[in-house]
Write a protein that binds this DNA or RNA. Sequence first.
DNA 1: ACTTTTTTGATTGTTTTTGATTGTTTATGG
DNA 2: CCATAAACAATCAAAAACAATCAAAAAAGT
Lengths: 249, 249
Amino acid sequence: MLTTERHQLIIKTVKNDQTTSLKRLVEVTGASESTIRRDLDQLEQQGLLRRVHGGASLISSASEEPAMREKVTKSQKEKRLIARYASSMVQPGDCIFIDAGSTTFEMIPFLKQKDIIVVTNGLDHLQALTEYNIKTYVLGGLIKSRTGAVVGAGAVQNLQQYRFDHCFMGVNGITIQDGYTTPDPEEAAIKQMTLQLSRKRYILADHSKFGNVAFTKFGDIQSAAILTNYEGPEINDFANKTNIKVVTT
Amino acid sequence: MLTTERHQLIIKTVKNDQTTSLKRLVEVTGASESTIRRDLDQLEQQGLLRRVHGGASLISSASEEPAMREKVTKSQKEKRLIARYASSMVQPGDCIFIDAGSTTFEMIPFLKQKDIIVVTNGLDHLQALTEYNIKTYVLGGLIKSRTGAVVGAGAVQNLQQYRFDHCFMGVNGITIQDGYTTPDPEEAAIKQMTLQLSRKRYILADHSKFGNVAFTKFGDIQSAAILTNYEGPEINDFANKTNIKVVTT
DNA sequence: ACTTTTTTGATTGTTTTTGATTGTTTATGG
DNA sequence: CCATAAACAATCAAAAACAATCAAAAAAGT
């Protein structure tokens, strides 16, 4: 049986039974426990079901959109890999900031049951965070409708009441010369302030971000550590300036 | 039987019987007393039922708080009618506060192209507001995952930087004696502060809210105008205390 | 045909869940 | 008020489920 076939079968079974035991899935598919566990991990990552002790259940909310969830793109896989590594930096009890953006969004499933406090300016993140029962604060301020991010002077001010163990930021451009850059000055202001308020600072950037320069700079290279999957030759130049972790698997 | 399944079964049984003995739950689920006790602990923690000596009962009505998605379909037509009238109070250029909750949510489509600024503490409102291209500020603070509302001390503080032409609030209970009440003290604090910051104050309440008293009071009857579809005889008593508009069509 | 990569299932030790047992608290009837 | 029984919380060891690891099998690439 093909992996994708098996995934389909699992989803179908869970949909049908509302909640299904791992043993039953082993029976239905004929695969081993290990394989089913791996499958459930993946399917949960894709938001198609929820793992529970002993099996799997439907996603709690009625927001099940079987066809809506598109297939995982390549860049999404890269982002998820980086996000997974980033999440491993987070320890129980930490207070962290998660920036708006698609890369940082991928961190959320990996933060489940970490017993942490999250502050974010990404509206898309909120639903996911609360669904995973993660204690979440939203930054107050103007909503930039195009990106679903909270920005503006009020947001910067609101931010200053918090202090973070870690912050995880997205970025649009990284070069040695120009540091970290992003198109929107409003969002840059948030990022800049967040960097100041955090003990440990991480930039999440897939390979496509390297060598680009966007409109607004929000930090020098050395102002944060870089988590990436970029393996180009210039990596060493960056490594001389700051911590950089290349995530490959 | 999976833990999740058993939890579902317990909730279903309690909902059905209003109050259930531990022994009965042992029979129904086939689990041991110890397990059921642990389950009840957890479910009580989640606010889904209340433990009593010998078993469990439904959450008492005063602090009951139906989850958001249950509320939506209930008496949506009534709410929409009230919400439409409420929206007609809003003039171009106004800055308004829209409270979290299903009734106020219905206002949003009627605010399209009004050229206004909206502040809200309802996460569910945000997506709708931005979709209608309404300039929106979100209140910063802790997210209460059950209702999707922003609450907490930070939120109250954050609120104080704003002043509103109008505020539109939901409510759980209205009586002459006890004024406006709501189950959650945290949300009540937000409502109370909002009332202070607004020039014109409106409570949106369908008929089911009249005569109820919830746990926390956030205002006297005269502290806001009431918009409702309730046509009972006591309406005149309320009318003596405050402005009340009965929306019928 | 051979190497490399991916997938799979078995095995490991660890964590979570469970039911029995303990002694303590609470309700109730005399 | 006391005695008694039921309900309770706390503890513990067994069982189930788990994540992590590894080598074999399958698939893909050369």
